[in-house]
């Protein structure tokens, strides 16, 4: 049981980290609290569901479709709301309210479009056979989720630390005013970052439909809560911290499920409180705050 919980915790934890990356990026770059983050994951899940059930295409193909779509939508949306956020004395609070509204709209539209019922995919991303890891049987979507999450996170790191746009993005993370003074196109960089954040969320949706046992329009709030906890544990605004937070969250949840299932929903949040008390800035906040 220990080995199973450990492996499951790492695999699912990597997924949680990946699912929270977009939220972390949006906050880190834009100081935007995207309450609709979970709803974007839900939309990604529905895209995967429709691809699989209507077009009979592997649901993981939702990722390459969702990425450019979400980046485009994100950039346009950011351009649309940025002036209001920029004028606000408290843009973080305004973004909270704004994205709460967006979340409600997405849920309502998803309910109209896909009905209130939970939708599930009966075939896993690579069939229905289980996978043996160190002598333990796992549903194949556990390692698949981790296998998508790790390169996805690495790509984000590559973008942030090995590209010119990434450099501009990190400059924005450090100081918006300094970035503007140094000639960085803040509007374009911010819009692109927001688009990438949405793309990450939508990509996580293609995996979430498996890990969370299906998709329903009202799932977004729970997903946002989980992502928010993961981001806070790892360090707000730090993409690397999101992965660390995901691992902590996943391990705590899976060990609790093994030994005290009734506490499984609570243990990760108790850890969140503990992290807040011991290291309020999160586990890995320093490195990126000053990167």
């Amino acid at each position: 049981m220990v080995l199973y919980a450990l492996i499951a915790g790492v695999l699912i934890g990597l997924f949680y980290g990946f699912a929270a990356l977009g939220l972390s990026l949006a906050f880190g770059v834009l100081r935007v609290v995207n309450i609709a983050h979970g709803d974007v994951i839900v939309l990604g899940s529905y895209l995967a569901y429709e691809l699989s059930t209507q077009a009979h295409i592997n649901p993981l193909f939702a990722i390459p479709i969702a990425v450019p779509l979400a980046v485009a939508i994100g950039m346009v949306f950011y351009r649309f709301v940025a002036p209001s956020l920029g004028r606000s004395k408290d843009p973080e609070m305004l973004s909270l309210i704004l994205f709460f509204g967006v979340s409600q709209v997405i849920e309502a539209l998803a309910t109209i479009g896909f009905s209130v019922n939970q939708d599930t995919l009966l075939t896993g991303p690579v069939g229905n056979a289980s996978v043996q890891i160190f002598g333990q049987s796992f549903p194949n979507y556990y390692p698949v989720a981790a296998a998508v999450a790790v390169p996805g996170a690495l790509l984000v790191m590559f973008y942030l630390y090995r590209s010119r746009l990434g450099l501009a993005t990190r400059a924005l993370m450090s100081s918006r005013a300094d970035a503007m003074l140094s000639g960085i196109d803040v509007g374009r960089t911010s819009a692109l970052s927001f688009g990438i954040a949405l793309a990450l969320a939508a990509s996580a949706g293609a995996l979430s439909i498996y890990v969370n046992g299906g998709v329903s329009p009202s799932q977004g709030t729970d997903l946002t809560t989980t992502a928010f906890a993961v981001v806070v544990i790892g360090g707000l605004g730090n993409p690397a911290g999101a992965l660390a937070g995901g691992l902590v969250f996943g391990l705590a949840e899976q060990f609790a499920q093994s030994y005290e299932p009734n506490w499984a929903g609570m243990v990760p949040y108790v850890l969140l409180l503990a992290v807040m008390l011991v290291k309020p800035e999160g586990l890995l906040s320093r490195r990126v705050r000053y990167a």
Partner: peptide, 20 residues
């Protein structure tokens, strides 16, 4: 004989514990 949260949707670890 165990209870779990009503919001539970991930059952891999629980099923493994049951199978044990």
């Amino acid at each position: 004989y165990q209870s779990t949260a009503t919001t539970t949707t991930t059952y891999g670890t629980l099923i493994d514990s049951i199978a044990a």
